[in-house]
Amino acid sequence: MATIDELKELMLGIGIDADTVNAVDPATALAIYNFDSLDWPIFIIAVEKRYAIVISDSDSLKLKTLNDFIHLLNENI
């Protein structure tokens, strides 16, 4: 089972600052926290590598919140 804490650790690992990571509400779109066009692909790659999964193009567009990531991961790992 993937956890929110694990995903937040990954966010810290790709260089998202700690204050932002601590503030992230798992049900709120990451875009609200200024996840930009660089953060998204880097985070998706980090998730794919950490959980050894491949996220399809269409699935990647449905990943908007940390809860979305948890839902996808728990269906696939």
């Binding site: 049900a27 709120t28 779109a29 990451l30 875009a31 609200i32 996840f35 930009d36 066009s37 998204w40 567009l61 990943l63 908007k64 919140t65």
Partner: peptide, 11 residues
């Protein structure tokens, strides 16, 4: 890239 960001911003 902008359309993908707009899609991801909308829950």
């Amino acid at each position: 890239t902008i359309y993908s960001l707009l899609i991801r911003s909308c829950t």
